[in-house]
Computed example of a mutant assay.
Amino acid sequence: MKSFKIIAVLACLIFIAACARKPKTVLLSDTAVLHENENQLTQVIIYDMFTPPVASRIYTYTSLASYEAMRYADPKYNSLITQLKGFATPPEPQKGKNYNYALAATKAFFTVAHKVTFSIDTLKKYENKVYAMYKDNLDDSTYARSVDFGEQIGNLILKRANVDNYLQTRAKPKYLGEETPAKWRPTPPDYLDGIEFCWGTMKQFAG
């Protein structure tokens, strides 16, 4: 009878410990994470009211960063930035080391996004949840290695973004058009000034 009580107490303790243990966060698929990253960025682009040309620049640099990290998950995918103008040689993962490339892609994506958008705090709230999910499911070394790799790629992409002449175009005066026939001019009902009229001065990726 005494041994039965001991077994019962131990069983109760094990049950309580199991209930108290925090369950792991469900690890979302790579596709789900990457799609939601883009969705979160889109919401910020809308909120910050970027013009379509500027939005295209934001999408281009962030997506390139994400791709350059994620492509290592499948050896059949080649680098894109090595085929474009003005980018340095991308870093490579350490051989024989484990990485989570979706995490690396997320870090690369938002490393760039922080520098090309305004509402960074909104992005960080989402990011922290994603990083917590990975931290809960990966060993510490894989997590840290993946984040570091993604940050390296993000910073490489930003080096190209910083010299594409975008900042110089921000200092241009507004284009209000001309009254000359066949020339552009503001029209009703809004009479808005020309959008990104000097976009053609931006450094191209190819050609």
Results as ranks from 00 to 15, higher is better:
R21S: 09
A182R: 08
N78H: 12
Q152N: 11
A104T: 12
T31P: 04
A105Y: 03
L34I: 08
L64T: 06
T142V: 09
R71N: 00
Y166E: 04
K159S: 13
K159W: 05
D74N: 12
T122H: 06
T60K: 10
D139Q: 05
W184T: 00
S66A: 15
L103N: 14
V116Q: 06
L10E: 08
Y126W: 09
T187C: 02
Y175F: 03
P188C: 09
T82I: 05
R21M: 00
Y131L: 01
M70V: 00
P186W: 03
D140P: 11
P52C: 02
L138H: 06
I58S: 12
T89Q: 14
Y77R: 04
I195W: 14
P173R: 07
L138T: 15
F15D: 03
I45E: 10
Y59K: 07
N128I: 05
T51V: 11
K159N: 13
Y134A: 01
E36P: 00
Q152L: 13
K115Y: 00
T201D: 15
A104Y: 10
P52D: 08
K203A: 14
L28F: 01
P189H: 13
K76I: 13
L41A: 06
N137R: 07
Y59F: 11
E92K: 14
M49K: 14
W199P: 03
N162M: 09
Q94K: 05
G86P: 15
T106S: 09
T51C: 06
A32F: 05
T180S: 07
E68G: 04
V147R: 04
G194D: 07
A102R: 14
S29P: 11
P181F: 11
I157S: 14
Q94P: 13
L138Q: 02
Y126G: 04
